[in-house]
Every structure is written in structure tokens, then in C-alpha cells.
Amino acid sequence: MSAASGPRVLAEARWPEPGDGAPPPVPGFVHSAFPPLVAAVADRCLTRRHGARPVPAGTRTAVVLVSASGDRASAEHVRATVAAGGRIGPLFFFQSVPNSVAGHIAARWGLDGPVVCLSPTGEPRADGTAEAELLLYDGDADEALLILIEQAPDGTPGEATAVLLGEGTP
């Protein structure tokens, strides 16, 4: 892949799209819409490219998750529980970092590339694409699943975009 041409968009998905309700729950994740939203948009994007799970053998796919705010609902729940002197459930230790849901996606789809989580300092898609390009150009992956997510501050699920980048034909 030449640096001048950049990677191609092999598939793209959004959540929500017309007709979508809440994203389906993800086993092992509680309280927050962040993990289900990430998983739903990733599944939709990967399905558009590869059909059923897993990805074809020999395809190294990286996951790049980009979110400025991360899992707001889980963070707020932990903050409020600690402030009230309560005990935090063990699942919150697992899901308190965004790479836990990225790892879940990688395991479910058989992805064997790197998993990277970013809090963007500039425009989120540009920052995520730059990271994905590094992984592709360095030979760490053949494809990179870029997931951009921000939850709405009012507690509604928010929205997410997933873009699969690589050299192949769209």
C-alpha cells in the first residue's frame, strides 16, 4: 500500500440506521449502552464486508476504537457508587476500559490484529484513520476496523460509525 493512495474504505456502517432500536445487549457487559453500541456497529460493518463470522483465515484485522468520552454511563455509575460508599460490582472493573469491548469484538470475529483505543486530540475520524494507516503501513494488519463512538451526555445510547479500511476492493 502506498502512503500517497491511503487505504480504501472496504465497508462502512452506522448505528443507528433507519429502523434501528437499541443495540442488542452484549453478554458480560452491564448497565451501559457503550459496549452494545460498539459491538453492534462493528458487527454490522464486518458483516457487510465478510458476511458471517469469523473473518477469512489469513486476514489480520486490527481494531481501532476512538472515543473522546469513553463509556460515560459506566464511569458515572462507578463515581456515584464510590461517592456513596457503595461496593462496585466486578463487571465494572472489566468493562471500565474501552479495550474490553474491542477485545470482545476481536474474539467473536476471530480478529488477530492489534487492538488500539484512542482519545482523539483532533478530529476523531482523522486521528483514528491516521492510527489505522500506521498499523496497515507497518504490516501489523491487512485491514483495520475503525470504530468512532460518542455517547450522548443525556444518557441516550448515542451513535457510532465503523469503517473497515484496507487494500482490498470495496
Score class of each variant (00 low, 15 high):
Asn99Ala: 13
Arg60Leu: 05
Ser119Met: 12
Asp140Gly: 02
Tyr137Phe: 12
Glu150Val: 00
Glu131Val: 02
Asp127Ser: 05
Ser100Gln: 15
Cys117Asp: 14
Glu76Arg: 08
Glu76Phe: 00
His104Lys: 01
Ile88Trp: 11
Asp154Thr: 02
Thr129His: 13
Pro56Thr: 03
Ala126Met: 10
Phe94Tyr: 15
Gly70Arg: 01
Arg53Trp: 01
Val55Thr: 05
Ala106Tyr: 02
Val64Asn: 02
Asp154Tyr: 03
Asp154Leu: 02
Thr129Ala: 11
Val64Phe: 08
Arg53Phe: 02
Ala57Lys: 04
Phe92Tyr: 14
Gly113Ser: 05
Ala80Phe: 15
Gly122Ala: 08
Arg72Thr: 00
Ala102Phe: 03
Glu143Ile: 01
Gly86Gln: 01
Arg72Trp: 00
Gly155Lys: 03
Leu146Ile: 06
Glu143Tyr: 08
Ser67Pro: 09
Pro124Ile: 10
Gly139Trp: 13
Gln151Asn: 07
Val116Glu: 09
Pro124Asp: 08
Ala68Thr: 00
Leu145Glu: 09
Val66Phe: 00
Val63Gln: 11
Pro56Phe: 02
His77Ser: 13
Asp112Pro: 01
Val101Ile: 11
Arg53Cys: 07
Val55Tyr: 06
Ala144Phe: 05
Thr59Ala: 11
Leu135Ala: 03
Ser69His: 04
Gly128Ile: 04
Ile147Met: 09
Pro120Lys: 10
Gly128Ala: 15
Val115Pro: 01
Asp127Pro: 04
His104Leu: 07
Gln95His: 14
Gly89Leu: 13
Ala62Ser: 06
Gln95Glu: 14
Ile149Gly: 07
Pro98Thr: 14
His104Glu: 13
Val116Thr: 12
Pro124Met: 07
Ala141Ser: 04
Glu131Arg: 13
Thr129Tyr: 11
Thr61Ile: 03
Ala75Gln: 12
Gly122Thr: 07
Ala107Asp: 10
Arg72Ala: 00
Gly86Met: 03
Ala73Cys: 08
Leu91Gln: 15
Arg60Gln: 07
Leu148Asn: 03
Ala132Ser: 12
Leu136Met: 06
Phe92Asn: 08
Leu146Cys: 06
Thr81His: 14
Ser119His: 11
Gly122Asn: 10
Ser119Cys: 12
Ala130Leu: 13
Leu135His: 09
Ala102Lys: 10
Asp154Val: 01
Ala83Leu: 11
Asp154Arg: 08
Ser69Cys: 06
Ala107Trp: 08
Gly103Ala: 12
Glu143Arg: 01
Asp112Arg: 14
Leu65Cys: 05
Ser69Gly: 12
Leu65Arg: 09
Gln95Tyr: 12
Ser69Arg: 06
Val63Ile: 09
Leu118Arg: 12
Glu143Phe: 04
Asn99Gln: 14
Thr129Lys: 07
Ile149Leu: 09
Asp112Phe: 01
Ala83Phe: 08
Glu76Asp: 12
Ala141Glu: 01
Phe92Met: 11
Asp127Met: 04
Asp71Gln: 06
Glu143Ala: 11
Trp109Leu: 08
Glu133Ala: 13
Thr61Arg: 10
Leu136Ile: 06
Pro114Tyr: 05
Ala152Thr: 01
Thr121His: 09
Thr61Asn: 10
Leu118Met: 12
Asp142Met: 03
Ser100His: 15
Ser69Ala: 10
Val64Tyr: 14
Ala152Gln: 00
Gly122Trp: 01
Ala73Gln: 09
Leu136Lys: 15
Ala132Thr: 09
Arg108Glu: 05
Ala126Phe: 04
Ser69Glu: 06
Leu111Lys: 13
Ala57Thr: 12
Leu118Trp: 13
Gly113Met: 02
Gly113Arg: 05
Pro90Gly: 13
